[in-house]
Amino acid sequence: MGSPAVKKEVPVPHPLEDLVRMERIPHIWCSGCGTGSVFTACLTAMKNTGINYDDFAMVSGIGCSGRGAGYINIDSFHTTHGRAIPFATGIKMARPETNVIVFSGDGDLFAIGGNHFIHAARRNMDITVICVNNFIYGMTGGQAAATTPHEAKSSTSMGGNPESPFNLPLLAYAAGATYVARWTMLHSRDLADSIEEAINHKGFSFVEALSPCPINYGRRNKQKPLDTLREYHANTIIKNNADPGELGIDFKQKVILGKFVDIEKPSHDEQYHRLYHETSTKS
């Protein structure tokens, strides 16, 4: 194609263009926002599975990362606030062969949608949940969230957050998730590999991706986008199979990354099929 000797003028398409609604690019995410990086890791993982794009569905809730569903060029649903997981559950029950990916943020998945998360994990619903965790409510103006680190500043905790954040991998594990991992958007290769593994995993998979929100979190906490990435590099440690109880986030200590849970257990649709389809046809 074209003349190979000229470097930049050859219009080679970006390798993910087949998965992105290119007419909507540039996306709305701010300069330095990590959501686009997590999204890229997710699309790369989907591509690497080799699964036909028609056998995927992506569901997002509300928030900056909730825009993901609007940018992907496959079947996708941009749902009501906090309800991405119930929609995903519905898709999975109606079409068990579909690989359902929930791409949403910490506020959507763990504050307003927290109950749905724990019950889908308890049921071992065979969906893949990717949480872009930026420690804040980005879209609505930087209010403290259920994931804001202790003492961090937000628009509703100018003197520091008096609360403690959720330890999301522990929550997922305790509720019954059968695949749990955490990376940062800087660990892009590990993140993409982990999402690929999560998609291939039968059962409820949860991947937490730490990601900068320079506008609403970084600014108040005196972190430029590159400072946040440096923190992801210097203040994290990879410890696969770490005890989920140790995974609380406090950048004064090292934050633990890795794959923590990967167990086999019948998924909800397998159990449902066994009890309601196999038995009824046998009798």
Partner: peptide
């Protein structure tokens, strides 16, 4: 790596 890290394609 730049390809994976870039938020903007």
């Amino acid at each position: 790596y730049c390809e994976l890290l870039c938020p903007e394609f």
